[in-house]
Design a binder for these strands. Structure first.
Length: 254
DNA sequence: ATGTCAGATGTTATCTGA
């Protein structure tokens, strides 16, 4: 079984790349972030023709998430239960007996900004909701664009990024608190190439210089942990013409 | 060099967000 996450930075632009990627990388479920589409514009026909069921939750211009799956997702939830939010950031569903939560965590902009305050509140609400989900779903995967680099080894220049957005102690504490619920970072279950990133800024030739951050993650519950066989970042789509700034992350379970 | 990309507004460019 394979699950994946990918921030596509506009599905309108990236749909051909998504379809190419799915053809080359058949997965059981894939969550997308930053679709940037209102629900009436979502490309259901094209994704259906590729052999995937899909649930989607979007808004104009910003954010927007989707859950693609080979088998239909059940008990679909949009956004964090009990957290009033005008931003479309979360979609969850049960696929093949696994609770799949796809999330586009707030960026936070800067540690002294209002958007950072929103990020902290959102993270708190997410944690309490995931805690509840784990009580009813032993087999659970939380994946998406976390906009958090959990450790210095997830940052190409940790000195320059110290205390900056994605790397603040407060964000890293929230990441650890999610692990404290009984989740594990699937990527770190395996030896990985050094300087493994999932995002590279479009500017500064960052991809060519491999200057990036690992901010896209797949967390799996303790019940799933013994079944995790691999976890990889697929850099290939970042080499495309007009790429997303993020690469997909894939987890393989037996 | 805050150096690119995407979407929106409303142009033949400027703003916001990432």
């Amino acid at each position: 079984m394979k699950f994946a996450t990918w921030n596509v930075n506009s599905l309108a632009v990236r749909l051909p790349q998504l379809l190419d990627w799915l053809a080359a990388n058949p997965v059981d479920a894939l969550v997308l972030q930053e679709t940037k589409l209102t629900d009436d514009k979502f490309p259901t026909l094209e994704i259906g023709a590729a052999g995937y069921q899909v649930q989607w939750f979007g808004q104009k211009t910003y954010n927007g998430v989707a859950l693609l799956s080979r088998k239909p997702a059940t008990d679909v939830v949009k956004n964090i239960l009990g957290f009033a939010d005008e931003q479309a950031r979360v979609i969850a569903g049960t696929v093949d007996g696994v609770r799949v939560i796809g999330a586009y965590f707030p960026n936070g902009q800067a540690p002294d900004s209002e958007k950072f305050v929103y990020k902290m509140g959102w993270l708190e609400a997410l944690r309490e909701w995931v805690r509840a989900e784990l009580k009813t779903h032993e087999r659970l995967v939380l994946m998406g664009d976390f906009n958090i680099a959990p450790e210095d080894r997830d940052v190409y220049d940790p000195v320059a990024w110290a205390g900056q957005i994605h790397c603040t102690p407060q964000e890293r504490e929230h990441f650890q608190a999610l692990l404290g619920l009984g989740l594990v970072d699937a990527f770190r279950l395996f030896e990985q190439p050094p300087k493994s990133w999932s995002w590279w800024d479009y500017r500064n030739l960052a991809f060519r210089k491999n200057q990036g951050l690992r901010i896209d993650h797949i967390l799996v519950s303790e019940a799933l942990r013994p079944h995790v066989k691999a976890c990889e970042i697929d850099k290939q789509p970042r080499r495309n013409e007009r790429p997303s700034d993020h690469a997909p992350v894939i987890v393989t379970l037996d």
